[in-house]
Design a protein around this nucleic acid. Structure first.
Lengths: 126, 126
DNA sequence: TTGACAATTAAGCAAATGCTTAAGTATGCT
DNA sequence: AGCATACTTAAGCATTTGCTTAATTGTCAA
């Protein structure tokens, strides 16, 4: 299927280096950068438009965008004298995987607790 | 309050983010702290045992544990002269939610792309 | 009580981070 | 060509971060 081939391709590209996880987590640690990512969900945008709502200089935003770019969370494209930024959607996969691993952990714990409580309950009702 | 902290606080408020999110993302941004969380998946542990594999002083680990505690990712309990740390599993929910929001975004994009490509394909085969 | 152990708190330092302003680089328009 | 626009790069600064060592707190055990 076309879709899954594409996903695979994107995933392979974003998984390459060892320290990629480090950059991802580092990149999303900053609230301004998370806000930028939020804004980009509304669609691709040039820097000027992207920077508008922030009480911050353009270079500051530019630097944030470079961090996001280096982490692979965002891609860049020249259009005339503008630079269009857009989300690189599959790039959050490592973070997603990491979180899911913990979800498994705690649902397992809760299941175990639930089972224990049920057993206790049964013992109380002979 | 200090300058950057204030700016960040204001940004967070104007951008719907909550203050707790800041601490979560900040806490998991550090690789040592992520490694500590990984280790804690094997079960609750006293600081000494937890610190063993790290080439780092005990106070350093202690400080990391405090950051994790403040973010609510981990809880602490005294047992004799040891302090037992354990995962606070549900605490990753905000991060999980945040990631899931992007997953929705990118699966939607990929679905749209897949559909478009399939339509193209059909048109090519009359 | 004394001493060992487990861990935290305190103080200090180098490096990283997030911002600023000023200068530089493309690109488009007239 | 000349000038404005859209950004980026560079340099510099204050704050934060992640560590260190030394001192402190609390608990156990003889």
């Amino acid at each position: 299927m076309l879709k899954y081939a594409l996903v695979k391709h994107l995933l392979n590209n974003s998984y390459e280096s060892i320290d990629c996880q480090y950059r991802y987590f580092q990149a999303i640690a900053d609230p301004t950068r998370r806000a930028i990512l939020d804004r980009l969900q509304q669609g691709e945008q040039p820097v000027k438009h992207l920077a508008a709502p922030f009480a911050m200089s353009l270079p500051a935003i530019s630097q944030h965008l470079q961090v996001l770019c280096a982490a692979g969370l965002v891609t860049q494209q020249r259009r005339g004298r503008e630079r269009i930024y857009r989300l690189n959607p599959a790039s959050l996969q490592p973070v997603s995987d990491w979180v899911r691993q913990y979800e498994q952990f705690w649902t397992a714990k809760l299941d175990a607790l639930g089972q224990y409580l049920e057993e206790q309950h049964l013992e109380e009702q002979p």
